[in-house]
Nucleic acid binder design. Structure first.
Lengths: 190, 190
DNA sequence: GGCGTATTGTACTGATTGGTACAATCACGT
DNA sequence: ACGTGATTGTACCAATCAGTACAATACGCC
C-alpha cells in the first residue's frame, strides 16, 4: 500500500504497533518512518510536534478503538453477564491472546511516564467505569462494582506484563478466565 | 559518600533506582554515571559489557533481595496465613505503597524485552512457586495453589502499572488488600 | 619508600538521536 | 494545460548515544 493512499488511521495504527513493541524511548523516528513508509519529513508534516504528536494520535485512536470495541458494548441494553463475557472475549482477541504488548503499559513506564499522564488516566478510568456500570446494572453495590472493575483492569494489565515476562501467553488466558469467573459470580446467572 | 568507599551493592542499588524509573531505553549512561557518582570509565571498568552488564547485576541483586525479603520468609515454618500476610506487608513496603515503579515491569517492556527473558521468567516463576508453596502447606490443592499464586503476582504487577498510569497509589493498596483477602480465604484461619 | 594492581579522568570515536530547511514533486480544481 | 496547496525527498544540524584508548592517579602490600 503506497503511503499516499494510506489513510491517517492506518498510519497511526502502524505507529501504534511500533510503540507498543518498543515503548516510547525505544521507538526511534527511523523505525517509525520505516514502519509507516513515510519519510521523516512526511512524518513531521503530519505530526508537527514529532514523537509526542504521534503518541497523542496513537492514544486518541486507541481510546476511540477501546470505546467502540469495549466501553460502549459494556453499556448496551443486554444482560450484564453477556456484556462482561463479551468484554473478556474482545480483550482476548484485542491482545491476540496475550501475544500483543499493551500500549498503555508501555507508555506508563520509561521517560514518557509523566508526559501522557492525563490521557492514560482517562483511559483507565473509563475502562473501570464501564465495567462498574455493567455490574451496577446487575444489582451489585456501588462499592463492590468499583472494586471488582478496578480489579479486573488491574489483572488484565498485570497478565500482559507477566505473560511477556515469562514468554507464556497462557498466563493471559488463565487470568481472563479468572476475571470472567469473578465477574459472573458477582452478577449471577442473569 | 565517595565513590571509592561505596560498596558494589550500593552502586547496583543506585543503578536499579535509575532503571526502574526510566526503563532500559530511557536510562542513559550519562544518568547512570551521575546517579552512581562513577565516571563513564569506572562504570565500564566494573561492568565491562556496559548497560547489559549493569542490568544483569541489577537483576541479580533484585533476585537476591526478593529471595531474602519475600521468597524465603514464604517458606519459613510458620502458619501459612502469617507468611502470606507478611508477604503482602513486605511488598507494600518494598514498592513504597505503589509509589516506586517495578523494575521487572520496566525491563519486560521496551527494547530490553528479549534480552533478559530468562532471568525475568525465573523471578516470576520463583515468586509464584513460593506463594504456591505456602498455600500447599495450608492444604490447598496443587492446582488451586498455582492458580491463586499466579493471580497474586499478576495482580501485584498490574496494580503497579495502573497505580503509575493513574497517578493513584491507592490502587496498589486496595489491590494488596484484595490479594490478601483471597489468599486468607483459601488457607482459612490457620 | 617503592612497586604493582585497581581504579579513575580526559579525550575521543563513529553512529544515531530528534528535529529543521528547502526545493522538488504530486494531486487536484479550474 | 495551468496554477496552487498539500505532500515528500534530500541534505543537513547540534546533541546525545554507547563504547574505547590511554595516561594519570590511588591504593595495598612488601
Amino acid at each position: 500500500m503506497p503511503a499516499a493512499l494510506m489513510p491517517r488511521d492506518e498510519v497511526v495504527e502502524r505507529l501504534m504497533k511500533v510503540i507498543r513493541r518498543h515503548g516510547y524511548d525505544g521507538a526511534s523516528l527511523a523505525e517509525l518512518s520505516k514502519a509507516t513508509g513515510l519519510g521523516r519529513s512526511s512524518l513531521y508534516h503530519h505530526f508537527p510536534d514529532g514523537k509526542d504528536d504521534m503518541v497523542r494520535a496513537v492514544l486518541e485512536q486507541l481510546e476511540q478503538g477501546l470505546r467502540t470495541l469495549i466501553f460502549e458494548p459494556l453499556r448496551e441494553p443486554r444482560p450484564a453477564r453477556r456484556r462482561l463475557e463479551q468484554m473478556i472475549k474482545t480483550v482476548d482477541a484485542y491482545y491476540d491472546g496475550g501475544r500483543e504488548a499493551c500500549v498503555i503499559g508501555n507508555l506508563v513506564l520509561g521517560t514518557s511516564r509523566t508526559r501522557f499522564h492525563a490521557r492514560l488516566r482517562a483511559i483507565f478510568e473509563e475502562w473501570i467505569d464501564a465495567v462498574a456500570a455493567a455490574l451496577l446494572d446487575a444489582g451489585v453495590s456501588r462499592a463492590e462494582s468499583r472494586a471488582l472493575a478496578e480489579d479486573a483492569v488491574v489483572r488484565m494489565e498485570g497478565a500482559l506484563i507477566v505473560a511477556h515476562g515469562t514468554g507464556d501467553t497462557a498466563v493471559f488466558s488463565r487470568t481472563l478466565k479468572r476475571i470472567g469467573a469473578d465477574l459472573v459470580a458477582a452478577v449471577g446467572p442473569g
